[in-house]
Design a protein around this nucleic acid. Structure first.
Lengths: 335, 335
DNA sequence: TTGTACGCGTTATCAC
DNA sequence: GTGATAACGCGTACAA
């Protein structure tokens, strides 16, 4: 049986209110009594019961994090940022894994609310109307990651995917590539599917390059699907000189397929990615990619949540973090 | 303001106890009233407040998971198993990241206890006396992952590292390798550092092969350290024909170093790993390694926790899951 | 079968 | 500055 505030009060010969005051520094307590209470706390090893505290305060020091996959490289790193900053502010993380299933996402959204979490960080591959509906009805602070939330009232933290895709495409073009495949997550509800495509298209157009729709593939962020997409290009004999995957994972799928077909990267085909997950510099050839400040994305997300909890008004709807093109070994110039 | 049991009781014109009874099926309620209450619950969208419930029941439906790194490939997969099974039994995961720092680990151990978690799954790189001390004083169900806990009373789930290391070494020997480097986590407190070494040594001895201590490296599971260790071998001109890393990550560190030194894997040097993280089949060459049932390790861990929570007696101290040697492309025969 | 009343461990609002 | 005491939302003896 653990020791409660009552026990401390009794042993220190004071009322529980007094004990509560010294714990929380909420109201002045005479120095003498304070010391006495502190001593008893020390001796008994008393720690306040957070559950009881939550009940009365309607706070939990808990932040819910909903992700579509824990073992995903990108997400793991985001979680690092969330956890570390959360810890600094004494918030704990309630982790929920949805496998991207809408049903699970909705279930967790409601569950977390009932668990009295003070805020929710929400990640999903596909954003649906149901999500938005939930958001509009809730008052829990919610932050999304890597989402264009400009059309509804949810804060999001991400990078400028349009611009990044534009830069990467331009980079490839300047290296002499003209036929450039785009392997992306998907279209409509998928993260920045449209944004990235438009960045790509803009660069192509600026250089008077034609977009071959056969080279635009939607692969739902799956390495395997990217692999198959490239295999298809090979089979159809339309393999381009460069492949731009909007996810490092998909880039690796592409590279693997090339290697397995006895093609060399970047000698035969250049491949670039997006995100700069750890793997990007582990893999050989090292991957040329767009670096997102992944850890910082998580860190900023939880900082925003905490600000919202404190009632501070957040001006921005979208926090855009800087990105950077990292040149490594998977892309070559063919000029 | 969310609706409470009191509101439901009032609207249904019954007492709160009755409402409580229908929610929990704890005691018989007349069908008529039951329906009435259910209807009100439906209409109001009432959900019991888990915090209040926790307070009175002294239960939280929460399981704490302490890990040394979230973004680690292996751990992410373990978390998947934990989360998925936990969800089935209606348990949520309180995630704690320690970066392997003892201080954080101890802090979280205590924090989780005070948060009323019903069980703790604990992972650490280095097991210390302080941990054991905590365990011996606590009554919360605790399960460790990938640990030899035979010398103290904590349940653990893992594979037979000794046997696995033995098999892998034997495999290399049978492929004609005689000088085999062992890159492992570390010695004393590190996971199975000794076990794996002994498995390795046993195989070597059985084949009358000499163990060159210069080829035994302790790399704390760090890819970079494995890289450096191999570089050192190259510089010292003692590069063996095969390298056995007790972690896939370290294996990749080794391979990368070889590649960066214009050495080919497996043509010049064979490299094998341990764990079979996803990356092992993504990387090229695909890594020959020991497959651990990573997901299952997490799944079993939480199952054991849940059994303990239910008061079932656990007979085994260590749950040993099966492993398997997966032959892929990073190792060749030199006979 | 149903309702009353108490307790879970805190914080907060009063009086003193 | 200090101490009762009422919440917080719920489960459960106990009584009816």
């Amino acid at each position: 049986m653990s020791v409660t505030i009552k026990d401390v009060a009794k042993q220190a010969n004071v009322s529980i209110s007094t004990v509560s005051r010294v714990i929380n520094d909420s109201k002045p307590v005479s120095d003498e009594i304070k010391q006495r209470v502190l001593k008893v706390i020390e001796e008994t090893g008393y720690t306040p019961n957070p559950v009881a505290r939550s009940l009365v305060m309607k706070k939990s020091q808990l932040i819910g994090v909903i992700v579509p996959s824990i073992s995903n490289f990108f997400i793991g790193e985001v979680l690092n940022g969330i956890e570390e900053i959360g810890k600094m502010y004494n918030y704990d993380i309630l982790l929920c894994n949805t496998y991207g299933e809408l049903k699970q996402e909705l279930r967790y959204l409601n569950l977390l609310k009932s668990k009295q979490v003070e805020g929710i960080i929400f990640m999903t591959w596909e954003l649906q109307e149901e999500h938005k509906k939930f958001f509009s009805e809730e008052d829990v602070p919610i932050v999304m990651i890597n989402r264009d939330t400009s059309d509804f009232n949810i804060t999001s933290v991400c990078i400028d995917h349009h611009q990044a895709a534009y830069e990467m495409t331009k980079y490839l073009i300047e290296k002499g590539h003209e036929r450039i495949a785009l392997i992306r997550g998907g279209i409509e509800n998928y993260v920045f599917g449209i944004d990235q495509y438009e960045g790509y298209a803009k660069a192509m157009k600026e250089h008077n390059l034609e977009i071959d729709e056969n080279l635009i593939k939607n692969c739902q962020f799956k390495l395997e699907m990217a692999y198959d997409a490239v295999q298809e290009m090979i089979d159809d004999d339309i393999l381009p000189t460069a492949i731009f995957a909007t996810t490092d994972s998909m880039a690796f799928g592409a590279i693997n397929c090339l290697i397995d077909n006895n093609l060399k990267v970047p000698e035969d085909v250049s491949v670039v990615g997006f995100n700069d997950i750890k793997l990007a510099s582990i893999y050989r050839p090292k991957l040329t990619t767009i670096r997102q400040p992944i850890y910082d994305i998580g860190a900023v997300a939880i900082r925003v949540i905490i600000k919202k909890i404190k009632g501070e008004e957040i001006k921005e709807n979208i926090f855009t973090l800087p990105h950077e093109l990292v040149e490594r070994d998977s892309c070559r110039s063919i000029k």
